[in-house]
Simulated assay, not measured.
Amino acid sequence: MEEIARLRRCYLQHRLGFDDWQSCVDWAIERLQRDDEGDDLDVVMLAAATKVEEVWPLVSAIVSRYLDGAQISDDVAAGKYIVELHTAYLSKSESIETLEQKFWKIFNRLNQPSWLAMLARNCEYATDMDFYEKPFEDEFSYISGLWSRASTLNEFLVSYDRNISNSHEADWQPVKNS
């Protein structure tokens, strides 16, 4: 199936609590208009869906047919979304302020994985303390770079080094009173 990546992206964002069900329906409509799916009943039913309750079981069935469970885990969903957010941040369509809420939502949704702790924390600190901007950006680049190359959580974890994340700490000195 061509363009499964677009549907996978939509599905993974749903798994993280960022619903965009209409883009899934649009995907199915486009596939049918180009006659790319033949008579796949799930795609036909997805294209006709008008309620969110109809969409997610169909999307899940379609995605599960083409990808294994390791490629659609919540951690992979988070990692791939972080890659997208990093690209958006670099293009200035996301800011530290807009990212903070998203990172904490993902962090809590995933039951606080250690690999995401420094990124979420540094983002929060960078919203109030300018000297945390560089450590935040360093950690953001590091995590998104690892996830851009990983297809599964295991692939990510093999490359992830907590010491590198720990090194993305602000170098600040308290103000001394004379």
Rank of each mutant, 00 (worst) to 15 (best):
L7D: 04
E139Q: 12
S148W: 02
D26F: 07
F156Q: 04
Y81M: 11
E84I: 00
A77H: 07
G38D: 13
L90M: 11
K102L: 14
Y125I: 06
D40Q: 10
V55D: 07
E37S: 12
Y160I: 01
P57C: 15
A120V: 10
D19L: 01
F103N: 00
L110D: 11
Y66R: 04
T98I: 03
P57S: 15
T87R: 10
F18V: 01
L67V: 01
W104T: 12
G79T: 00
S159Y: 04
S148M: 09
W104R: 11
D171N: 15
A120G: 09
V83D: 03
W115C: 04
P174F: 08
C123T: 08
F18W: 02
Y160H: 10
F103D: 01
N177I: 09
S91R: 11
L67Q: 08
G145K: 05
F107I: 06
A28G: 01
L46Y: 10
E139M: 14
R149A: 09
S148F: 05
Q173E: 13
Q13V: 01
H86D: 10
I106K: 03
I72L: 14
L146D: 02
N111K: 14
M118T: 11
N122K: 05
V63L: 15
P113T: 03
I106S: 00
R162N: 01
L67G: 05
S73H: 06
E155L: 09
K92A: 11
G17N: 00
Y132F: 14
R109D: 00
N111A: 12
A48Y: 04
K92D: 03
D20I: 00
I4K: 07
R65K: 14
N177E: 06
R109Y: 02
T127M: 08
D19F: 10
K51E: 12
Y125N: 12
K80F: 11
E54A: 13
Q13C: 07
L12P: 01
L46K: 11
A88S: 13
D74N: 05
G79H: 08
A150I: 02
S114D: 13
L32A: 01
E100I: 04
I82H: 01
V76D: 09
V83M: 03
N111D: 15
A61T: 12
C24E: 00
R8I: 00
D128I: 06
W27H: 05
R9E: 04
R8G: 02
L99Q: 11
E2D: 06
F107V: 03
Y160E: 04
R121L: 14
A70M: 06
S165C: 05
D20F: 01
W21F: 10
M129E: 13
I4V: 15
L85R: 13
M1T: 15
D42E: 15
M45T: 13
E54I: 06
K102T: 13
P57M: 15
P174G: 08
V43R: 07
D74V: 02
